[in-house]
Design a protein around this nucleic acid. Structure first.
Lengths: 233, 233
DNA sequence: CGCGATTTGTGCACTCGTTCACAAGCGCAT
DNA sequence: ATGCGCTTGTGAACGAGTGCACAAATCGCG
């Protein structure tokens, strides 16, 4: 809404407000943000790249380079001002506005997500819940009434929903995605185990627990094989 | 357990059974596996790299290169044998054995995970549930009784648990991880928003919904800025 | 039996990301 | 005021991953 011009301190002119950050950097910024909040709560008002990197679980050089992409922030010989850096990262991530999220699919996972406190704490507001099952429609979950999926389009527009979360079974996911996109949603978080096809300009991120476990399984398998191999030597 | 020697067809000698796959490839194999299962159910018995790549949402050249790492599998002019490829990927990922998983933290998310069918379907077996809250201990969820966390170490050994899933609040996660590691678990899937410190040889993967949303938020923000910028021009 | 259509496997160039190592900058003690 | 220790910011080398484009291989058909 309120797109303010660069009123802050020395920012590279030319680009309006935004350098294009490397994707890998963007993916780490939320992690830094979390680490910073932890440090702030622990009473630190400044943090060295080393300390912050440790808290975020990354290499300190990487962290410095990442932060350098959003303009110089630290003070040499001292470190980074925690509060200032928090504000800056929040600004870059667009967390200064509370984003409205629609959650579709109130099964096991959807139910849990609806009750997850981590949303509200971190810049998001679950604005509405949807499901296709008439049994569920009307039920109250965490202060929100489940609506039927046929109301999705209207609600998205009405509540200015920017992000859709799909927690439906795989076979329903594409249809839900289509509705979301048609209604103007341009960011989707997909928990269904399937690929979504969306038009250009729409971002989709996928979370699949089974995939994560299978990756772990591979490494387990490899570690076991390495052991057996070592014995054979 | 039964570590069978390379009895299969032409495999590169030298390495015991295992090429070291690029990490990026490993991360995609589960996705291929899912796509293959979908194709198999749709009645296909062979699939071209193009078709499979589309189903998995990746570039076909990338897919071919990935598959080439696990030994040649396709037939030129024809494509890949779906069933054969499924078996091969499952073998590489170590999914031929059903891996026992311990789930710690039966809050909102843990409860949902305990009931998630995707585990059993995809090579995993939830062997035990744990929580620190005595209120929860003893409750039956999806056929499993919640045990107190003090039983974790013993159970891990007893049930031959290889993978631990942490779904506790952040402040409890490190302690749980320590117990898991001490008990012999070498793979952890962490849903708590914090970094876990574990000894070398232990693999940790992290899933954080808020992080995913924040990454989406960044792109939303950028897209909005681009629009405003375009108007300004 | 040979030819053309098709599809895999891969060498190569390129982009993206990571890490090292160090100069430049800052504060503090003296 | 000056020098010393600490920390950032970054140039440059390195490594991993991606995608193109094509040769090699296979099948089906005439």
């Amino acid at each position: 809404m309120s797109q303010q011009r660069t009123g802050g301190p020395g920012n590279t002119p030319g680009s309006p407000d935004f350098p294009d950050l490397p994707e890998a950097t963007v993916a780490r910024l939320p992690e830094y943000l979390r680490a910073l909040h932890a440090l702030a709560e622990a009473g630190h008002d400044t943090a060295s790249s080393e300390a912050l990197a440790a808290a975020a679980g990354v290499n300190s050089a990487k962290l410095r380079k990442d932060l350098s992409h959003l303009g110089s922030n630290g003070t040499r010989g001292v470190g980074y001002n925690v509060d200032r850096l928090i504000r800056q990262i929040e600004h870059v991530l667009g967390l200064t506005v509370l984003r409205a999220v629609a959650l579709v699919g109130i099964g096991n996972l959807g139910h849990a997500l609806a009750g997850y406190a981590g949303f509200a704490n971190r810049g998001f507001h679950i604005a509405a819940l949807f499901d296709a099952d008439q049994e569920l429609v009307g039920r109250l979950i965490n202060g929100l009434t489940v609506r039927h999926i046929s109301d999705l389009a209207a609600t998205v527009v009405e509540e200015k929903i920017a992000i859709g979360v799909i927690a439906t079974p795989a076979h329903a996911a594409q249809a839900v995605a289509d509705i979301l996109v048609t209604s103007g949603v341009t960011s989707i978080l997909n928990f269904a185990p399937c690929v979504l096809s969306v038009p250009e300009g729409v971002d989709v991120r996928k979370v699949d627990v089974a995939v994560e476990l299978q990756i772990l399984s591979f490494h387990e398998h490899r570690k076991a094989a390495a052991l057996t191999g070592a014995v054979t030597l």
